[in-house]
């Protein structure tokens, strides 16, 4: 079973987000909420998706960073969690 690369993760995260910003162009570093791209209820939807898709538990301390809500920041978080969990890979949607 092939392991997801960081770029695979980023593509998945970007695709998920782009499905919810109604075709607006979005930079990978751009804060979703500060930019007004999505409303706050999307935060819950996205966290639950991250947990499901990557088999992770997101705690509130993970969200302390003010720049959690960008494609790059979420990818970094998922990568970091993977490493600390011993490299378990996402395998299905």
């Amino acid at each position: 079973m092939a392991e997801n690369t960081i770029e695979d993760d980023k593509r998945l995260i970007r695709d998920f987000i782009l499905r919810h910003v109604h075709g607006e162009p979005l930079d990978d570093d751009e804060d979703l909420f500060a930019g007004g791209y999505v409303n706050s209820l999307f935060a819950v939807q996205m966290l639950l998706w991250i947990e499901r898709a990557f088999g992770l538990r997101v705690d509130d301390k993970d969200l302390d960073s003010t720049n959690f809500w960008s494609v790059n920041a979420i990818t970094a978080f998922v990568t970091d969690r993977r490493v600390s969990a011993g490299g378990a890979a996402w395998t299905s949607n």
């Binding site: 909420f33 706050s40 209820l41 999307f42 935060a43 819950v44 939807q45 966290l47 509130d60 969200l63």
Partner: peptide, 13 residues
């Protein structure tokens, strides 16, 4: 409807 999601997102953001 969505009480828990709204409470959570309000604090999250």
């Amino acid at each position: 409807e969505g009480t828990t999601e709204r409470s959570w997102s309000q604090r999250l953001l």
